[in-house]
């Protein structure tokens, strides 16, 4: 059967779900904190400032430092994990309940899996769109600049002076606030979906969390998660993670998940077990 029909079906059934309403409150938490920081410093954040704050992350935690407690990037983790959580169960529907009717009608296992991959990418896109809209709402309500311009003062306040007073070009701001986080989250979400073919979904979700926590500790570009932390980018700090390789790595993982997942799904038994 036509792949586009399957994709259309998945987008129709699995994209706009009630639980999407959870996204604005999730995104509002870092936006509120960003607002508080910029307000107390007497400057205003633009849309790009809010978005970059949402996906700022933290500097790597050093285990060598035995004296201080680690500052945990809880809001960053919530934003990323929120996306993984919201997209965890939809593919399972097809593997268990209603889905056998759909899989059989698809006529082609590879197409079915690829449609799920496209759905996953679109659902992550929708998630980021909703985060962006929440940031836009904050920008408008606080009288900020609804643009990709990020002035040096706000940047210095938000990034605790890490940027050395740089002003970011709009394209860089877009890359750090939207494109790289989107690619990173999509890669982890697809990885989670692929792993669901071989293990229980709860453990796939745990693996996603472990990956994210590894990236909190180590800023190696090889660990997924670093791409979604603006503060570690070489565009902001010297010796940081280069955006090119980080994006390439995410794309590679997305492609590998699509290829390996469809190969595995072609060979797997659909027994109708619930989870």
């Amino acid at each position: 059967m036509n792949l586009t029909k399957l994709i259309r079906h998945d987008l129709q059934c699995g994209l706009f779900r009630l639980r999407c309403l959870l996204v604005p409150p999730l995104a509002a938490l870092p936006c509120l904190l960003c607002l508080r920081i910029t307000d107390s410093a007497g400057c205003k954040s633009s849309w790009a400032g809010y978005m970059m704050y949402c996906f700022m992350g933290i500097e790597p935690i050093s285990v060598q430092d035995t004296m201080e407690k680690a500052q945990f990037p809880i809001l960053w983790l919530i934003l990323i994990i929120g996306c993984l959580y919201l997209h965890l169960d939809y593919p399972l529907n097809d593997l268990s309940l209603t889905g056998q009717q759909i899989i059989v009608r698809s006529g082609n296992r590879r197409n079915w899996y690829l449609a799920k991959c496209v759905w996953n990418l679109c659902a992550c896109g929708l998630y980021f769109l909703m985060v962006s809209l929440t940031a836009s709402l904050f920008t408008v309500l606080t009288g900020g600049d609804l643009s990709l311009n990020c002035d040096a003062a706000a940047l210095k306040v938000l990034y605790l002076g890490e940027t050395g007073g740089k002003t970011l070009p709009p394209l860089t701001a877009l890359l750090l606030s939207l494109i790289l986080p989107y690619l990173t989250v999509s890669a982890i979400s697809l990885l989670q979906m692929t792993l669901c073919l071989i293990m229980k979904p709860i453990f796939c979700f745990l693996i996603g969390i472990i990956l994210l926590l590894l990236s909190v500790y180590w800023d190696s570009p090889l660990i997924l998660g670093n791409g979604a932390m603006g503060i570690r980018s070489s565009l902001l700090i010297s010796g940081g993670v280069a955006p090119g390789p980080a994006a390439e790595e995410c794309c590679l993982i997305i492609i590998l998940c699509m290829a390996i997942g469809s190969w595995m799904f072609k060979r797997s038994d659909i027994l109708g077990a619930r989870d």
Partner: peptide, 13 residues
């Protein structure tokens, strides 16, 4: 040659 029968309707479980 194919993943599923070309024209099938089913009710399993």
């Amino acid at each position: 040659d194919m993943d599923f029968p070309p024209s099938v309707g089913l009710l399993i479980e």
